[in-house]
Amino acid sequence: MKQSSLRALRARLISALAVSILLSACASFPDDAPIAGLRLIGEQRIALKQAFQGTTVGGLSGIDYDAASNTWVMESDDRSEINPARFYRATLSYDSAAFSAVTFNSVHFFTQPDGSRYPNLAHAKLDRGEQVADIETIRVDPQDGSLWYGSEGNRKVGLHPFVRHADRDGRYLSTLPTPAMFHVSMEDIGSRNNMSFEALSFSSDGKSLWLGMEAALYQDGPLATPDNGSVVRITRLDRAGTVLGQYAYPIEPVASRPAPGREADNGVSEILAVNDHRVLVLERAGVADADGLYTNHVRLYEMETDGATDIRDIPALAGATYVPARKRLLLDLGKAGLARVDNIEGISWGPRLANGRRSLVMISDDNFNPQQVTQILAFEVL
Protein backbone atom coordinates (compact mmCIF):
# COMPACT_ATOMS: atom_id res chain seq x y z
CA MET A 1 0.00 0.00 0.00
CA LYS A 2 1.32 3.47 -0.85
CA GLN A 3 2.50 5.77 1.95
CA SER A 4 -0.25 8.29 1.10
CA SER A 5 -2.91 5.56 1.35
CA LEU A 6 -1.49 4.40 4.69
CA ARG A 7 -1.59 7.94 6.03
CA ALA A 8 -5.19 8.37 4.88
CA LEU A 9 -6.22 5.06 6.44
CA ARG A 10 -4.45 5.96 9.69
CA ALA A 11 -6.22 9.34 9.78
CA ARG A 12 -9.62 7.68 9.27
CA LEU A 13 -8.94 5.17 12.05
CA ILE A 14 -7.85 7.90 14.47
CA SER A 15 -10.94 9.94 13.64
CA ALA A 16 -13.22 6.92 14.14
CA LEU A 17 -11.55 6.12 17.47
CA ALA A 18 -12.00 9.70 18.68
CA VAL A 19 -15.70 9.63 17.82
CA SER A 20 -16.05 6.26 19.57
CA ILE A 21 -14.42 7.62 22.72
CA LEU A 22 -16.63 10.71 22.69
CA LEU A 23 -19.82 8.71 22.21
CA SER A 24 -18.76 6.36 25.00
CA ALA A 25 -18.34 9.33 27.31
CA CYS A 26 -22.01 10.25 26.95
CA ALA A 27 -23.38 6.73 26.41
CA SER A 28 -26.67 5.89 28.08
CA PHE A 29 -27.15 3.75 31.13
CA PRO A 30 -28.89 0.45 30.33
CA ASP A 31 -32.52 0.43 31.38
CA ASP A 32 -31.87 -2.45 33.75
CA ALA A 33 -29.29 -0.41 35.67
CA PRO A 34 -31.08 2.71 36.93
CA ILE A 35 -29.18 5.36 38.87
CA ALA A 36 -29.54 4.57 42.57
CA GLY A 37 -27.79 7.70 43.81
CA LEU A 38 -24.55 9.64 43.93
CA ARG A 39 -21.60 9.41 46.32
CA LEU A 40 -19.52 12.55 46.88
CA ILE A 41 -15.87 11.93 46.07
CA GLY A 42 -14.60 15.38 46.91
CA GLU A 43 -14.59 19.13 46.33
CA GLN A 44 -12.15 21.65 44.91
CA ARG A 45 -12.53 25.43 44.99
CA ILE A 46 -11.18 28.09 42.68
CA ALA A 47 -9.98 31.32 44.24
CA LEU A 48 -12.15 34.43 43.82
CA LYS A 49 -11.26 36.29 40.62
CA GLN A 50 -8.26 34.06 39.96
CA ALA A 51 -6.12 35.48 37.18
CA PHE A 52 -5.37 33.23 34.21
CA GLN A 53 -3.74 34.18 30.90
CA GLY A 54 -4.90 37.79 31.13
CA THR A 55 -8.47 36.97 32.20
CA THR A 56 -10.42 36.77 35.44
CA VAL A 57 -11.82 33.35 36.24
CA GLY A 58 -15.35 33.34 37.60
CA GLY A 59 -19.02 33.03 36.73
CA LEU A 60 -18.47 29.41 35.71
CA SER A 61 -22.02 28.37 34.91
CA GLY A 62 -21.42 25.46 32.52
CA ILE A 63 -19.08 22.48 32.35
CA ASP A 64 -18.60 19.47 30.07
CA TYR A 65 -16.07 16.69 29.61
CA ASP A 66 -14.06 16.38 26.39
CA ALA A 67 -13.17 12.68 26.35
CA ALA A 68 -10.88 12.89 23.31
CA SER A 69 -8.46 15.22 25.10
CA ASN A 70 -9.33 14.20 28.69
CA THR A 71 -9.99 17.85 29.51
CA TRP A 72 -12.98 19.83 30.71
CA VAL A 73 -14.54 22.94 29.18
CA MET A 74 -15.95 25.55 31.57
CA GLU A 75 -17.74 28.62 30.27
CA SER A 76 -18.07 31.94 32.07
CA ASP A 77 -21.36 33.84 32.04
CA ASP A 78 -19.45 37.12 32.12
CA ARG A 79 -21.37 39.28 29.61
CA SER A 80 -18.05 40.60 28.26
CA GLU A 81 -17.99 43.11 31.11
CA ILE A 82 -14.76 41.89 32.74
CA ASN A 83 -13.29 40.05 29.74
CA PRO A 84 -14.89 39.01 26.43
CA ALA A 85 -17.25 35.99 26.53
CA ARG A 86 -15.03 32.94 26.98
CA PHE A 87 -14.48 29.40 28.14
CA TYR A 88 -11.60 27.61 29.78
CA ARG A 89 -10.07 24.20 29.27
CA ALA A 90 -8.92 22.49 32.44
CA THR A 91 -7.81 19.17 33.87
CA LEU A 92 -9.60 17.69 36.88
CA SER A 93 -7.63 15.15 38.90
CA TYR A 94 -9.87 12.71 40.74
CA ASP A 95 -10.47 9.01 41.25
CA SER A 96 -12.94 7.07 43.37
CA ALA A 97 -10.98 7.91 46.54
CA ALA A 98 -10.23 11.64 46.23
CA PHE A 99 -10.52 14.82 44.17
CA SER A 100 -7.03 16.33 44.33
CA ALA A 101 -6.63 19.20 41.87
CA VAL A 102 -7.99 21.55 39.20
CA THR A 103 -5.49 22.79 36.61
CA PHE A 104 -6.39 25.44 34.03
CA ASN A 105 -4.77 24.83 30.65
CA SER A 106 -6.06 27.51 28.27
CA VAL A 107 -8.67 30.21 27.70
CA HIS A 108 -10.66 30.68 24.46
CA PHE A 109 -12.98 33.47 23.35
CA PHE A 110 -16.32 32.90 21.64
CA THR A 111 -16.84 34.78 18.37
CA GLN A 112 -19.84 36.19 16.55
CA PRO A 113 -20.70 35.28 12.93
CA ASP A 114 -18.41 38.05 11.64
CA GLY A 115 -15.46 36.65 13.57
CA SER A 116 -15.37 39.36 16.24
CA ARG A 117 -15.62 38.71 19.95
CA TYR A 118 -18.88 39.37 21.75
CA PRO A 119 -19.17 42.96 23.04
CA ASN A 120 -20.66 44.10 26.32
CA LEU A 121 -23.93 45.99 26.35
CA ALA A 122 -22.25 49.40 26.47
CA HIS A 123 -20.39 48.75 23.19
CA ALA A 124 -22.79 46.48 21.31
CA LYS A 125 -24.12 47.68 17.96
CA LEU A 126 -27.59 46.25 18.45
CA ASP A 127 -28.90 47.93 15.29
CA ARG A 128 -26.35 45.91 13.30
CA GLY A 129 -27.38 42.59 14.78
CA GLU A 130 -24.68 42.21 17.39
CA GLN A 131 -25.46 40.03 20.38
CA VAL A 132 -24.52 40.47 24.01
CA ALA A 133 -23.83 36.91 25.11
CA ASP A 134 -25.04 35.69 28.50
CA ILE A 135 -23.71 32.16 28.13
CA GLU A 136 -25.13 29.75 30.71
CA THR A 137 -24.46 26.28 29.31
CA ILE A 138 -21.91 24.52 27.11
CA ARG A 139 -21.60 21.03 25.59
CA VAL A 140 -18.90 19.14 23.69
CA ASP A 141 -20.23 17.60 20.48
CA PRO A 142 -19.77 13.80 20.77
CA GLN A 143 -19.34 13.53 16.99
CA ASP A 144 -16.39 15.84 16.44
CA GLY A 145 -15.46 17.67 19.65
CA SER A 146 -16.89 21.02 18.55
CA LEU A 147 -18.91 23.09 21.03
CA TRP A 148 -22.56 24.09 21.47
CA TYR A 149 -23.58 26.80 23.90
CA GLY A 150 -26.70 28.61 25.03
CA SER A 151 -27.25 32.27 25.87
CA GLU A 152 -30.17 33.79 27.77
CA GLY A 153 -30.30 36.93 25.64
CA ASN A 154 -31.57 40.16 27.17
CA ARG A 155 -35.28 40.89 27.28
CA LYS A 156 -34.71 44.50 28.37
CA VAL A 157 -33.08 45.38 25.04
CA GLY A 158 -34.92 42.87 22.85
CA LEU A 159 -32.19 40.22 22.45
CA HIS A 160 -33.61 36.72 22.03
CA PRO A 161 -32.00 33.71 23.72
CA PHE A 162 -29.97 31.55 21.35
CA VAL A 163 -28.05 28.30 20.93
CA ARG A 164 -24.91 28.44 18.81
CA HIS A 165 -22.39 25.96 17.43
CA ALA A 166 -18.65 26.74 17.55
CA ASP A 167 -15.43 24.94 16.75
CA ARG A 168 -13.14 23.64 19.49
CA ASP A 169 -11.63 27.10 19.94
CA GLY A 170 -14.95 28.96 20.17
CA ARG A 171 -15.13 30.26 16.59
CA TYR A 172 -18.71 30.62 15.33
CA LEU A 173 -20.06 27.91 13.02
CA SER A 174 -23.86 28.27 13.06
CA THR A 175 -26.97 29.14 15.06
CA LEU A 176 -29.48 26.45 15.97
CA PRO A 177 -33.07 27.44 15.08
CA THR A 178 -35.22 27.36 18.23
CA PRO A 179 -39.00 27.71 18.65
CA ALA A 180 -40.43 31.24 18.41
CA MET A 181 -42.29 30.70 21.68
CA PHE A 182 -38.97 31.32 23.45
CA HIS A 183 -38.43 34.77 21.94
CA VAL A 184 -38.55 37.80 24.18
CA SER A 185 -41.33 40.36 23.86
CA MET A 186 -42.39 43.67 25.33
CA GLU A 187 -45.67 41.95 26.23
CA ASP A 188 -46.15 39.35 28.97
CA ILE A 189 -45.41 36.47 26.63
CA GLY A 190 -42.32 34.43 25.85
CA SER A 191 -39.14 34.22 27.93
CA ARG A 192 -38.66 36.14 31.14
CA ASN A 193 -35.49 38.19 31.48
CA ASN A 194 -32.47 36.16 32.64
CA MET A 195 -34.63 33.02 32.94
CA SER A 196 -34.47 31.33 29.54
CA PHE A 197 -31.86 29.03 27.93
CA GLU A 198 -30.08 27.84 31.05
CA ALA A 199 -29.68 24.16 30.24
CA LEU A 200 -28.43 22.06 27.31
CA SER A 201 -27.49 18.42 26.82
CA PHE A 202 -26.76 16.08 23.96
CA SER A 203 -28.92 12.99 23.81
CA SER A 204 -27.17 9.78 24.81
CA ASP A 205 -26.72 8.81 21.15
CA GLY A 206 -25.37 12.24 20.21
CA LYS A 207 -27.92 12.76 17.43
CA SER A 208 -30.12 15.38 19.10
CA LEU A 209 -30.08 18.00 21.86
CA TRP A 210 -32.20 18.66 24.92
CA LEU A 211 -32.81 22.35 25.69
CA GLY A 212 -34.08 23.44 29.10
CA MET A 213 -35.64 26.70 30.25
CA GLU A 214 -34.70 28.07 33.66
CA ALA A 215 -38.21 29.27 34.45
CA ALA A 216 -41.76 29.33 33.11
CA LEU A 217 -42.70 31.31 30.04
CA TYR A 218 -45.09 34.14 30.88
CA GLN A 219 -47.98 32.28 29.25
CA ASP A 220 -47.21 29.08 31.14
CA GLY A 221 -47.88 30.47 34.61
CA PRO A 222 -46.20 32.19 37.54
CA LEU A 223 -42.73 31.56 38.95
CA ALA A 224 -42.11 29.23 41.89
CA THR A 225 -42.69 30.59 45.41
CA PRO A 226 -42.33 29.04 48.88
CA ASP A 227 -46.01 28.08 48.61
CA ASN A 228 -46.30 26.90 45.01
CA GLY A 229 -44.21 25.21 42.37
CA SER A 230 -43.99 26.11 38.71
CA VAL A 231 -43.40 24.48 35.35
CA VAL A 232 -40.73 24.77 32.65
CA ARG A 233 -40.49 23.45 29.10
CA ILE A 234 -37.74 20.99 28.23
CA THR A 235 -37.43 20.49 24.48
CA ARG A 236 -35.69 17.91 22.31
CA LEU A 237 -34.43 19.14 18.93
CA ASP A 238 -32.47 17.55 16.12
CA ARG A 239 -29.28 19.15 14.85
CA ALA A 240 -31.24 21.22 12.30
CA GLY A 241 -33.52 22.67 14.99
CA THR A 242 -36.60 20.53 14.29
CA VAL A 243 -38.54 19.91 17.49
CA LEU A 244 -38.71 16.18 18.24
CA GLY A 245 -40.64 16.56 21.48
CA GLN A 246 -41.34 18.97 24.31
CA TYR A 247 -42.32 18.21 27.89
CA ALA A 248 -43.53 20.07 30.96
CA TYR A 249 -41.18 19.63 33.90
CA PRO A 250 -42.69 20.48 37.32
CA ILE A 251 -40.54 22.74 39.50
CA GLU A 252 -40.65 22.38 43.29
CA PRO A 253 -41.74 25.26 45.55
CA VAL A 254 -38.85 27.32 46.94
CA ALA A 255 -37.41 25.35 49.86
CA SER A 256 -37.43 28.19 52.42
CA ARG A 257 -38.77 31.70 52.87
CA PRO A 258 -36.80 34.90 52.26
CA ALA A 259 -36.54 37.69 54.79
CA PRO A 260 -39.28 40.34 54.49
CA GLY A 261 -38.74 42.42 51.35
CA ARG A 262 -36.10 40.00 50.00
CA GLU A 263 -36.24 37.63 47.02
CA ALA A 264 -36.36 33.87 46.56
CA ASP A 265 -36.64 31.74 43.43
CA ASN A 266 -36.26 28.21 42.14
CA GLY A 267 -35.50 27.10 38.61
CA VAL A 268 -33.65 24.67 36.36
CA SER A 269 -29.94 25.42 36.21
CA GLU A 270 -28.80 22.50 34.00
CA ILE A 271 -29.89 19.21 32.44
CA LEU A 272 -28.02 16.05 31.43
CA ALA A 273 -29.40 13.17 29.33
CA VAL A 274 -29.29 9.68 30.83
CA ASN A 275 -30.88 7.74 27.98
CA ASP A 276 -33.53 8.23 25.30
CA HIS A 277 -36.30 9.13 27.74
CA ARG A 278 -34.63 10.11 31.02
CA VAL A 279 -32.88 13.39 31.77
CA LEU A 280 -31.18 14.60 34.94
CA VAL A 281 -32.44 18.01 36.04
CA LEU A 282 -30.70 20.36 38.48
CA GLU A 283 -33.08 22.54 40.45
CA ARG A 284 -31.33 25.46 42.10
CA ALA A 285 -33.08 27.80 44.53
CA GLY A 286 -31.68 31.01 45.99
CA VAL A 287 -33.21 32.54 49.13
CA ALA A 288 -32.09 35.94 50.46
CA ASP A 289 -31.81 36.76 54.16
CA ALA A 290 -32.22 40.18 55.79
CA ASP A 291 -28.68 41.18 54.72
CA GLY A 292 -29.25 40.14 51.12
CA LEU A 293 -27.07 37.04 51.44
CA TYR A 294 -28.34 33.97 49.65
CA THR A 295 -28.81 30.42 50.85
CA ASN A 296 -28.80 27.93 47.99
CA HIS A 297 -30.96 24.82 47.90
CA VAL A 298 -29.80 22.45 45.14
CA ARG A 299 -31.44 19.16 44.27
CA LEU A 300 -30.82 16.72 41.43
CA TYR A 301 -33.84 14.95 39.95
CA GLU A 302 -34.31 12.40 37.20
CA MET A 303 -37.05 13.36 34.71
CA GLU A 304 -38.98 10.58 32.95
CA THR A 305 -40.61 11.63 29.66
CA ASP A 306 -42.34 8.32 28.87
CA GLY A 307 -46.06 8.87 29.39
CA ALA A 308 -45.80 12.66 29.44
CA THR A 309 -47.71 14.89 27.02
CA ASP A 310 -45.81 16.31 24.07
CA ILE A 311 -46.66 20.00 24.63
CA ARG A 312 -44.97 21.54 21.59
CA ASP A 313 -48.35 22.56 20.13
CA ILE A 314 -49.79 23.91 23.39
CA PRO A 315 -49.10 27.67 23.20
CA ALA A 316 -49.87 28.34 26.88
CA LEU A 317 -49.71 25.81 29.71
CA ALA A 318 -51.66 27.96 32.18
CA GLY A 319 -55.15 26.47 32.21
CA ALA A 320 -54.27 23.72 29.71
CA THR A 321 -54.73 20.00 30.25
CA TYR A 322 -51.59 17.90 29.93
CA VAL A 323 -49.56 15.22 31.71
CA PRO A 324 -46.23 16.57 33.03
CA ALA A 325 -43.05 14.52 33.10
CA ARG A 326 -42.52 12.38 36.17
CA LYS A 327 -39.53 13.02 38.40
CA ARG A 328 -37.67 11.38 41.26
CA LEU A 329 -35.12 12.86 43.65
CA LEU A 330 -31.58 11.53 43.29
CA LEU A 331 -29.63 13.91 45.50
CA ASP A 332 -30.21 16.81 47.88
CA LEU A 333 -26.87 18.61 48.04
CA GLY A 334 -27.80 20.00 51.44
CA LYS A 335 -27.44 16.44 52.74
CA ALA A 336 -24.26 15.53 50.88
CA GLY A 337 -21.88 16.45 53.70
CA LEU A 338 -20.58 19.69 52.16
CA ALA A 339 -19.50 22.64 54.30
CA ARG A 340 -21.63 24.84 52.05
CA VAL A 341 -23.66 24.58 48.87
CA ASP A 342 -23.23 27.47 46.49
CA ASN A 343 -24.90 28.44 43.21
CA ILE A 344 -24.56 25.11 41.34
CA GLU A 345 -25.23 25.73 37.64
CA GLY A 346 -23.25 23.11 35.70
CA ILE A 347 -23.28 19.32 35.54
CA SER A 348 -21.48 16.81 33.32
CA TRP A 349 -20.72 13.14 32.99
CA GLY A 350 -17.06 12.41 33.57
CA PRO A 351 -14.81 9.46 32.73
CA ARG A 352 -15.48 6.04 34.18
CA LEU A 353 -13.74 5.28 37.45
CA ALA A 354 -11.40 2.32 37.92
CA ASN A 355 -14.29 0.30 39.36
CA GLY A 356 -16.24 0.76 36.10
CA ARG A 357 -18.79 3.18 37.49
CA ARG A 358 -19.56 6.53 35.90
CA SER A 359 -18.41 9.78 37.46
CA LEU A 360 -20.32 13.06 37.46
CA VAL A 361 -19.11 16.61 38.10
CA MET A 362 -20.93 19.79 39.18
CA ILE A 363 -19.73 23.40 39.21
CA SER A 364 -20.98 26.60 40.85
CA ASP A 365 -21.22 30.13 39.47
CA ASP A 366 -19.82 32.60 42.01
CA ASN A 367 -21.05 35.67 40.08
CA PHE A 368 -17.60 37.21 40.78
CA ASN A 369 -19.03 37.85 44.24
CA PRO A 370 -16.78 37.73 47.35
CA GLN A 371 -19.70 36.33 49.35
CA GLN A 372 -19.81 33.25 47.10
CA VAL A 373 -17.40 30.50 46.05
CA THR A 374 -16.60 28.57 42.90
CA GLN A 375 -16.82 24.93 43.93
CA ILE A 376 -16.31 21.88 41.73
CA LEU A 377 -17.78 18.63 43.04
CA ALA A 378 -16.93 15.12 41.85
CA PHE A 379 -19.32 12.21 42.41
CA GLU A 380 -19.40 8.47 41.85
CA VAL A 381 -22.64 7.33 40.17
CA LEU A 382 -24.13 4.38 42.06
Rank of each mutant, 00 (worst) to 15 (best):
H108E: 09
T175E: 15
V19F: 04
D332F: 02
L173P: 00
E380N: 05
L237I: 10
A85S: 15
N369W: 10
R171M: 12
W72C: 01
T295D: 14
Q3D: 13
T242F: 01
F379W: 07
A68V: 07
F99Q: 02
R171F: 06
P258Q: 05
S76W: 03
A51V: 10
A33F: 08
K49A: 13
Y249L: 13
R89M: 04
N369L: 10
S203R: 04
K156P: 05
Q143W: 04
G62K: 11
E136Q: 06
R139T: 03
G62Y: 08
I21N: 03
D95C: 03
R326T: 12
A354E: 12
L211S: 07
D144W: 00
L40D: 01
V163E: 05
L377M: 07
N266V: 05
Y322P: 13
R89G: 03
T321F: 11
R328Q: 13
D306I: 12
A378W: 05
R89H: 06
T309Q: 10
R312H: 08
S348E: 01
T309P: 13
I311R: 15
D220N: 05
Y247F: 14
G206I: 11
V298K: 12
D276T: 09
D365K: 14
P30N: 14
F202C: 11
F197I: 14
K2M: 05
I344M: 08
S185M: 09
L237V: 15
S28G: 12
D169R: 05
H183W: 10
K2G: 05
S204A: 15
V57P: 00
L147C: 01
R45I: 11
A290F: 02
S348K: 01
T225N: 02
G337M: 04
N343R: 13
N83K: 11
D265T: 15
I314K: 14
Y247I: 06
R139K: 13
G37M: 04
F368N: 10
E81L: 04
E302R: 02
A47M: 12
D64K: 07
I347H: 00
G212T: 08
D66Q: 14
S100V: 04
N154R: 12
E380P: 02
S364N: 11
E187N: 14
I46L: 15
T91F: 00
N369G: 09
L300D: 00
K335G: 09
G229H: 02
G59M: 08
D276A: 10
A316S: 15
Q112V: 11
D220M: 09
D276P: 00
L333W: 13
S348N: 02
L176H: 05
G261V: 06
G245Y: 00
S96Q: 15
F109E: 14
N228L: 08
F109S: 15
Y294V: 10
V157W: 14
K125W: 05
P258M: 06
T178V: 15
D310H: 04
V184R: 07
V298N: 07
I347D: 01
S24M: 15
R10C: 07
N355P: 01
L159Y: 11
D365V: 10
C26V: 15
K49M: 13
M303S: 02
G334C: 05
T242I: 09
N369P: 12
G346L: 11
G150N: 06
A16Y: 07
Q44N: 06
P370W: 00
T305W: 00
S203K: 08
G229K: 06
